[in-house]
Design a protein around this nucleic acid. Structure first.
Length: 291
DNA sequence: TAACCATCCTGTTAGC
DNA sequence: TGCTAACAGGATGGTT
């Protein structure tokens, strides 16, 4: 599933090819991919066709392409199975939901296929608004409630630690709350908690400041490592997010490792049901501490 | 306000 | 072999 590192790989790969390009045409194959767009597909197509893309930005798992004029952006969320594939003018991809044909001075004519098997992802055109904490910075309204991600230079550590201190719910639930810290999904939550030796249901407010600092450091380390391993998947012809399921998988210590020995203590990793998904952890290394 | 949960979705895979 | 059911989980909006 695309989490921060995968989305950043896509953003970084897209940036040189889309910045300065003009959207020549837009085709919507499945309107469900416009669920988060405020208006019918005709509106989406009208507002995008002929526009110039001026950058490729990201916060957490949200990516957006600001459009000329500075007032709005094309927001892309990959959901669980979304991909953005840059192709030549004739290449088709199975399960393409939306297609943009773009023209670029240096890269020529390209096709940007938004592919999404499960249709949890979306595209939408959304107004940009200034951020309250950094002068001159803008984000789409759809993203304004999302917290900064831990790789963002303006991420406020003190605020994050303070907010954790008021949460009685389990730490994993807090890590997955994008309005508290963004970019972390099920995989990297399990991996960072394993690295920090914290049980996923440990109440957030029960963690010491030292433990919270350790956790944040491990979150950053896990994200940075995954980003480093995925950073090469772009070449001049196309961006492929699909490596997401593969390139980092050999580095996993807990996620999906149920039944296999914990790399630290050798006891089996356990999987439990949690929030309609799986939680993977080592019951020996990551013990629930009574408060 | 915080906590929690149902809902949306379908290609792949496991099981019968 | 062929069919069916289970599975994966990010964001949102509603209820408690």
């Amino acid at each position: 599933m695309p989490e921060l590192p995968e989305v950043e790989v896509v953003r970084a790969g897209l940036a040189p090819a889309v910045t300065g390009s003009v959207v020549a045409s837009v085709t919507v194959f499945d309107e469900r991919s416009l669920r988060r767009h405020d208006g019918p597909s005709e509106d989406f197509i009208d507002r995008l066709t002929g526009r110039t893309i001026v950058a490729a930005s990201r916060r957490g798992k949200f990516m957006w392409l600001p459009l000329d004029g500075g007032a709005e952006a094309l927001v892309v969320h990959l959901g669980m199975s979304g991909q953005v594939l840059l192709r030549d003018r004739i290449t088709d991809d199975k399960l393409t939901r939306i297609r943009l044909e773009i023209l670029h001075e240096d890269h020529g004519d390209l096709r940007l296929n938004f592919v999404d098997q499960r249709i949890f992802g979306s595209m939408s055109i959304v107004p940009l608004v200034p951020t309250p904490d950094v002068a001159g910075e803008h984000v789409p309204t759809q993203v304004s409630h999302i917290a900064r991600d831990p790789l963002d230079p303006h991420f406020d550590e003190k605020l994050f630690f303070a907010r954790l201190g008021t949460r009685n719910s389990g730490i994993k639930r807090a890590l997955l709350d994008q309005s508290l810290i963004s970019g972390i999904g099920n995989i990297y939550a399990d991996e960072s908690l394993w690295a920090s030796k914290i049980h996923y249901e440990q109440p957030a407010l029960s963690l010491s400041l030292a433990k919270k600092k350790l956790l944040l450091a491990e979150v950053r380390a896990v994200l940075a490592k995954a980003l480093g391993e995925g950073g090469t998947s772009f070449d001049a012809q196309y961006v492929n997010v699909n490596g997401a399921s593969g390139y980092f998988s050999h580095s996993l210590n807990a996620y999906g490792q149920q039944g296999k020995p914990c790399p630290r203590c050798g006891r089996p990793i356990v999987r439990e049901q949690f929030m309609n998904r799986g939680s993977h952890f080592c019951p020996w290394c990551q013990r629930l501490k009574l408060v």
